[in-house]
């Protein structure tokens, strides 16, 4: 499976789905789908990087924690992230994110994510890879 992301329908908010050959790549794609809620990810330059760590009691909550950790960084730094590298060891996640401060004229940000929710939250292993899904409140 090639790494990819997409958004799925939710009336009030936005469903996001990241898929890839490995669990880590599915999480990376889910983060890209999150950025795409705000702007087109290719508009975001990899000017600076930050590290994120999280751990959770199960894999779905690890996805919840990962996306919410990214949202917290977006909200407090006023940054956007266009690329990430994730490593997952059991129920622990370490990630490096590359991005830059929001530039309204260039990014034309549409909406700010409030939080990743438990709605439609799933991490699924498929014959050829993984898919990570959840609905984000905006």
């Amino acid at each position: 499976m090639d790494p990819h992301w997409r958004h799925f329908e939710h009336k009030a908010d936005i469903g996001l789905c990241g898929c890839g050959p490995t669990l880590a790549s599915a999480f990376e794609q889910a983060a890209l789908a999150l950025t795409a809620v705000v702007t087109e990810p290719q508009r975001v330059e990899a000017q600076r990087r930050i590290e994120i760590r999280c751990q959770a009691p199960d894999i779905e909550l690890l996805l919840y924690d990962w996306l919410n950790a990214v949202i917290l960084q977006m909200a407090t730094r006023k940054w956007l992230f266009g690329h990430s590298q994730v490593a997952i060891d059991g129920l622990q996640l370490r990630a490096t994110l590359w991005g830059e401060p929001v530039a309204a004229a260039r990014h034309r940000p549409a909406v700010e994510p409030k939080g990743a929710t438990l709605t439609a939250l799933s991490v699924e292993q498929l014959p050829d890879g993984w898919c990570a899904r959840c609905v984000v409140d905006v």
Partner: peptide
């Protein structure tokens, strides 16, 4: 938003 995020997780667990 952050209060909601944190307590939703704690309540789920």
């Amino acid at each position: 938003h952050q209060i909601g995020t944190e307590f939703l997780r704690e309540m789920a667990i």
